[in-house]
Each structure stands twice: as structure tokens, then as C-alpha cells.
Amino acid sequence: MSSNDTTMTRTTASVFNFSSLIKRDRFAGLIVILLIIAALQVASLFAPDYIAPPPLLIAEKLWTQILPLWDEILVTLIRLLVALVFAMVVGTVLGVVMGMLPGLRPYIRSLVVIDTGIPALSWMLIAVFWFKEPEIRIFFIMSVILIPFYALNVFDGIRALPKEWLEMCESFRPSRWQVLRYLILPHIVAYVFTTTRSVIGYATRMVIFAELIASAVGIGAQMGLAQANFDIAAVFAWTLLLVVLNILSQSLVAVLEKRVLSYRPEVEVR
């Protein structure tokens, strides 16, 4: 190969690497974060601190005031986890019942559809009236909001079950329980993961909202306090923390999903 050819190959390779780099999610995410920080810095030059605090002040708040409140953060995360697991179990059971018991299907589906039509704020206000204990309020709010997502997606999963698999399974003349155990439950695992991934961000927002309305402890309550003190830098710092927590929880679910559903081939569309 001549030196010219080598140079050309290198140039092509470096162009290719750069083009693949700018398409990467992490690279794009980093660029967007830098742009947001720059925009905030520029805004802070023209607006007072209580409107647009400089990024350094937000970072300082995060480090000195927010992170030491780890117990508040932990409370929110535990509330989120407990509600998510409960909604997953109850929603999956409801979805399976809808999928396997046609007699009960229209009743449960109507109940779930009505539930999805009720605004989250209504549930929060109702919870404040109904329950005295903040933990029960938040658990109730999160459950009624999240259960329909699991129920409807699991039901969709059962409807999408290939009829051929069912016929194959039934050729061994199994009991209803065996069909559930060997066919339906493994099949809906993918749907449960997809639901979890899609609701985790929404659930995080809802738990913060519920804490703001119905509790004096947790990230939502702390954000309410920051708002009452006109401490916008703290609001930004809490928000930053929530974004990081959300990305981490999404990544955790994605890793679990990849591990549990390792049987699925990786498909890449050109």
C-alpha cells in the first residue's frame, strides 16, 4: 500500500470514528449537559440569583446542603421502590386475571380505565382527606397511579402471546396453572420490564409531587421548603439530583432487563 493510500485510509477512519462518536448517546448527553450549564451561566449574568442562579452556586448547594440530607433522599427512594414493587405485583396479577379469565375481564378493564382517567392531583387530594398517616397517603397515591400501567401492559402482553405457543403447550394437556407457570409468566416478564422502564421517570415525579402535598419528609417536602424560603438554587440542586437518580434507576432497570432477558437476540437496524 502506498503512503497516499495509508493517509487516505487514516483520514477515512478518523472521519468514520468522529461520525460514530457524535451519534453515541453518552456523547450527545454530555454535549446537552454542557449546553444547559452554559445557558444557565449566561442567564445568571443578566438575571438576579433568585431567577437564574449560577451553576457554581447550584453545585455548592448540592454539595453542602442537599447531599448531607441523605436520609431524606433515602426515604423518597424507599417510598418509590416499595410502591413500584407493589404496583408491579398487583398490576401483573390484574393483567393476568384479565388475560386468563374472560368473565372478569370487562369489569377489571373498566376499573383500570376509570383509574387512568382520574388525575394524579385528585388522588393526592383524596389521599389527604382519607388518610392521616403520610406513608399510607404516599403509598396509596403511588399505587393507584402505577397499577394501571402494569395491568394494561401485562394484559397486552398476554393478548400478544402467539397462539402457536399456546397450542403447542396445550398439546401436552397442561392444567391452567401450568399454562400460567410455563408459558404466560415467562412471556410477560419482558412486558413487566418495559413497563418499569417507562414508568420509573413518571413514578419519580409522582412521588416528589405526593411528598410535596402529603408529607413533611422526603425530597418533595424539601423542595417545598426550598420554594417557601425563595431558595431557587436549592430547587435547582434538588432537580439536578433527581435527574441523576432517574438516570441511575433507568440504567439499573436496563441492566436487570438485559440480564433477565439475555435469551433475546440483539437486533440492530441499519
Partner: peptide, 22 residues
């Protein structure tokens, strides 16, 4: 059957085991 109807979450041996488990 005409098509293999293997369950994708089971390995080859686990697919063979299905009827025996039932």
C-alpha cells in the same frame, strides 16, 4: 408441528423438558 414453536426463553434442552415438566 409445522413450525418448531420453541419457547425463546428456554434453551434447547429446556424446550425438550417442557412436556416432561407438565
Amino acid at each position: 408441528f409445522q413450525t418448531d414453536r420453541l419457547l425463546p426463553w428456554r434453551t434447547a434442552i429446556e424446550n425438550v423438558e417442557l412436556g416432561l415438566q407438565i
